[in-house]
């Protein structure tokens, strides 16, 4: 991995299991052994089908979900470290073993540095608070404003920053359109002057003509404020547009990670290839001529994931080895990581 001080967020062997009532064992294995790093000032995109754990990964990094095990380092400081309580016994079953309590940092100072923008703007804004109160609440919690005037000035500044009118501070969320609501959500995230923002599908709930407005705004903010993004979306074309590097997830595991145009030109994991070929291209000529790989079947349940490589049940090139051994996630070309047995 590249120079240490350039890395803002580093995640090592992160796991997140959700226990299920009435079921023995680890339950839903939403994030399974993911390691990645995010450089300061870059945008890392995360793509994958629904249920692949991309949102869970984003939220677990922020510790909105307590991680099961692994290590999260923010700006050189470990904010979570824990041993894996789920170990394989002789028969290959996962059993719970006693492990020391994980070490968790006090998150309040980190909440100022790490923020999140949610997918559904209407559901993530309190309908009984005005926009000014919603944004002001973040300022109050972190005690960022000395007096009332400073607070209102800051709220006005934030609103105009995201392209809203300063008078809008007295309105309620339902008085806005979806695109404007998302702008409020962005202003709220910006209020505490964060360094790192997890954008969890920030545009998928918006109309086509509004999506590009929000994408451009996110790009401008990154330029002006030097933000680092983890951009989660299922729309590959948008992720490719906004990201420096892209990670592809499948059923809780990271299968490939590369620089965004490299990933597009030269995908090496079979799943990335199918995912890229499945995206409809808005060009009739191209869609008539290109060959598409159509995957058979559906994504398996993370309650009971396949053994070995988790993709082997749908992979057209799967071999006996894929069914048994978990492939290593390693670097195949500079900056181009993938986990596949076929690549050696």
């Amino acid at each position: 991995m590249s120079e240490k001080k350039d890395i803002l967020v580093q995640v090592d062997h992160l796991k997140k299991y959700f226990g299920v009532k009435g079921i023995k064992g680890p339950g839903i294995q939403a994030v399974e052994d993911v390691s990645l790093f995010i450089k300061r000032g870059e945008t890392l995109g995360l793509v994958g089908e629904s249920g692949c754990g991309k949102t869970t990964l984003g939220r677990t990094i922020l510790q909105l979900h307590p991680p099961t095990s692994g290590k999260i380092i923010y700006d050189g400081q470990p904010i979570f470290e824990g041993e894996d309580p789920w170990q394989k016994d002789e028969s290959g079953q996962l059993v719970h073993v006693k492990t020391p309590k994980p070490t968790v940092a006090n998150m309040l100072p980190y909440r100022r540095k790490m923020q999140i923008i949610f997918q559904d703007p209407s559901a993530s804004l309190d309908p009984r608070m005005t926009v000014g109160e919603i944004i002001g609440e973040a300022l109050d919690i972190h005690k960022l404003c000395a007096n009332k005037k400073e607070r209102t000035d800051r709220i006005k500044e934030l609103l105009s920053r995201v392209g809203l009118n300063t008078e809008h501070a007295n309105r309620y969320p339902h008085e806005f359109s979806g695109g404007q609501q998302q702008r409020v959500g962005i202003a709220r995230a910006l209020a505490v002057k964060p360094e790192f923002i997890v954008c969890d599908e920030p545009i998928s709930a918006l109309d086509v003509s509004i999506q590009s407005q929000v994408v451009n705004m996110l790009e401008d903010m990154q330029q002006d404020l030097g933000l680092t993004y983890l951009f989660i979306a299922h729309d590959l074309s948008v992720v490719r547009h906004i990201s420096n590097r892209i990670g592809v997830m499948y059923l809780g595991t990271l299968v490939e990670l590369a620089e965004s145009y490299e990933l597009n030109r030269n995908p090496i994991h079979p799943y990335t290839k199918t995912l890229l070929s499945a995206v409809p291209v808005p060009d009739p000529e191209v869609s008539r001529t290109r060959q598409r790989i159509v995957l058979q079947g559906d994504i398996p349940s993370p309650m009971n994931p396949p053994t070995g490589c988790r993709f082997h049940t749908r992979c057209p090139y799967a071999t006996e080895k894929c069914k048994q051994a978990v492939p290593q996630f390693k670097e195949h070309a500079p900056g181009h990581y993938a986990a596949c047995h076929l690549l050696g």
Binding site: V208, S209, S212, V215, S237, H241, N264, V281
Partner: peptide, 10 residues
């Protein structure tokens, strides 16, 4: 509409 969409093959 056509212009505002990022293309996957750009």
């Amino acid at each position: 509409l056509l212009r505002s969409m990022p293309r996957v093959d750009a």
